[in-house]
Design a protein around this nucleic acid. Structure first.
Lengths: 195, 195, 195, 195
DNA sequence: CATGAATGAGCGTTCATTCAT
DNA sequence: GATGAATGAACGCTCATTCAT
């Protein structure tokens, strides 16, 4: 599989694409989704018109951004998940890597939050992000199989966990000194509530 | 009565103010915070310049909107709270009136959600909204005093409950047929988790 | 002559009219002719609509302002002029009282300068202001009758003197310590040049 | 040649820039500094948004306009100055070319007058204009070294000459038939007064 | 008559996208 | 293909003046 070679076809391009993504994260975190494409391009060091060779519209950029960040998060969470022991250990692994990532990448998290509620990110994109996270999603559903939410829509369970995670990350970012303690305590809460 | 008004040439019309607020809710729910002030005015049936007689800037409109909706929610939740029995009954009252209001007023809820994450709504306004909700807030904190989150920042506990409510309301809106069941089940989850 | 009584007919009005004029001087000096009528009214402590009972349009206010300031200046200059001795003494009297007034009333002077070049002040108004200054104007022309400008349009001579005065007042305002010296020296210059 | 331009997609058009400047001169002469940017663009034959490609703000346009006109005037005055003979000849050269330019370019002169008293033209810009005029300025100061104004601030001397020039140009514009005579007579006045 | 809310054309400026070079 | 100038509709907001009260 010459995956590498495929991207070699436009080596400079890939760098530029990433520069635009990174710049967009910085600017959108700072100024919201209203950040001007020209400003994003400028901060990325590319000409404003060139942004549109990589992302035909601003909406395409938003969707790409969403997937990019979501994939980074998922790969962070999935990494090492197989090595975790029982259900509890696995959930803890997910929880800890998720919230630590969020606490350490507050710009990305804020951008993700904005994109998640924007109509400009299509349902298809959100669906794709959701699908990519199937390992964690499955585990969470499995854990919740017997608890208080056992009869709820699995999507609802996921949303509950997600919003709990989001709140936890906010708290960890705001008070880094107690971040680990918050992470652990909320995990216990989650475990108790889901089971 | 109305002595104060006797000397006013043409008092600002409460009706018009409300028409603008209502129009803003409709448009912002549909188009986001980017909804044009001129469009809001038009939908409210007032000339564009008149919007600024009632709200000097768009940001002032946002802040007023936030308080307006928050107060409606709070008064809905507080109504009848004193008549509820023990702690569990009281929490149930809060939970049920909150989520039912949200399910029945999805536009207002979406607008509130957008405003809550917007930098245009000042900290002072958010603080004021928070303060107005002290009855519910106190009860929730009291309930959580002994549970898994007992050592967490009270603000964190509040945020967790809020995000759970938000997710619940989304679910209730999406599937009105099972709304009551979702409401009850999530309450049980909440009760179990907090205590 | 019951001049006093004439104005007694609207005693409160006269105060308000003056308050508007004074406020306009302050605001226009600060912000230029673009100063909003509502701001002028507010600073004067009168309702914005009432400004238009005194001055039907902003342009009328400008014209009134022009005359008001010009008349104050003229009466300052004319005061004591009859008591001055010969031609030289009289010109000195005019020059000194004029430039001292300007140095001490820089706001009024700046407003007058702005109004003088504005198309909103009508030729008729400017003409009236000019006519009211006939005592000084005549003297200046008389002095210049034999000098280097003897064959020029009298209006030109007046303009030259006026612009010299304006520059002198600027200089006196900027450096109050040497104001008197500047006043005297420029008078000598004027005298030498005109004669 | 033009190596620098080879890599530019579409260089800013000097023609368009000049069309905007020219249009601004016409409109500002007619309507004052309040002339609308959209009207200026329209009269220049460019879309309203394009004006801001060349001048980021209206204030930038004002500053560019000031320098543009000032430079034209200075270059007109400086042209041939070296060929003039003694001090008197040189001052005459300055005076004649200055006032003739003003009489022939009354729109530009009026615009320059408006810009000169506007707070929107920065001190830095005015300073730059002043610096560019050093040849004439030096000569005028040199001539005045021994006359009635010898002890005054050189800036004051300059202002006096400038205001005399301005008045002269007004007069020449108004009565073109006697323009030359006015020009000559005022020069004699200036020479007599400064020396 | 006095008041201040009402009005709506007009303002300077922005920006996603296009397209000439 | 890469570039950045070009575009023009849209935006939030202002303000002289009117007029209902």
């Amino acid at each position: 599989m010459n995956l590498e070679r495929l991207s070699v076809a436009r080596p400079k391009s890939e760098e530029r694409r990433q520069a635009i993504i990174d710049s967009a994260i910085r600017l959108i975190a700072r100024e919201g989704l209203g950040a001007a494409t020209a400003a994003i391009a400028k901060e990325a060091g590319v000409p404003n018109g060139s942004l549109f060779t990589y992302f035909p519209t601003k909406i395409d950029l938003f969707n790409a951004l969403y997937m990019e960040i979501k994939e980074e998060l998922i790969s962070t969470v999935d990494d090492g998940l197989s090595d975790a022991g029982d259900e509890r250990e696995q959930l803890l692994h997910i929880w800890a890597s998720w919230t630590r990532w969020g606490a350490a990448n507050s710009e990305k998290r804020r951008v993700l939050a904005q994109l998640s509620v924007s109509d400009d990110v299509t349902e298809a994109t959100k669906e794709a992000g959701f699908t990519a996270a199937y390992r964690s999603v499955s585990l969470i559903r499995q854990v919740a199989r017997h608890g208080a939410l056992r009869d709820q829509d699995p999507a609802f369970v996921g949303a509950v966990v997600e919003s709990l995670a989001s709140t936890t990350m906010d708290c960890m970012s705001r008070d880094p000194k107690h971040a680990e303690q918050v992470c652990t305590a909320t995990f216990e809460f989650l475990w108790k509530a889901l089971r």
